[in-house]
Amino acid sequence: MPRQPRKYGEVESLSLTAMMDVMTIILVFLIKQVDAEGQLLTAADNLTLPNSTSTKVPKEVSLGLVVDQNWVLVDGQQVVRTDSVASQDNLLVDALDAVLKEKRDQEKQAMLARGESDEGGGNVIVQLDKNTYYDIMFKVMATCGYSGFTNVAFAVNMIGGEEF
């Protein structure tokens, strides 16, 4: 079919309908994605979590404890160097214990202020690099238990979680 010559001066408006369709699909997909996450747990930057077949996701907000190659962090605050945890003999990490006790007290106060009973221990989710030694992990865990955070969970990468 021969192409029709365009008349000068005629304004062709760009059809946005097709683009709208694409955008709507992307939008619905993204909303679903965000909704399904819940976002109670965000991965720390400089560590690799181990892969696991666990499908359990955190149900409530917990204190975040991160152990990376250099530092032990509580809620993003550097507390103690990982090397010094590894080199000490005692199971209890004093610096970490002090910070955790303080956090636990704050939690208790908040619970009491809301008029809820503070039964059971606090929740803590520990993120460890997958090459962390068991020794460090055990000391951190023991310290958590000692300072009142008795529900300890470890963050892992869900296998197959990347696909959607």
Binding site: E37, Q39, T42, A43, K56, A142, V152, V156, N157
Partner: peptide, 22 residues
């Protein structure tokens, strides 16, 4: 909306492993 949602969504799904205390 799309950039906002894109920045919020996580592409790495995290799970937890529960343990009883040592």
């Amino acid at each position: 909306l799309i950039p906002v949602l894109l920045s919020m969504s996580a592409f790495q799904k995290l799970a937890i492993v529960d343990i009883n205390l040592p």
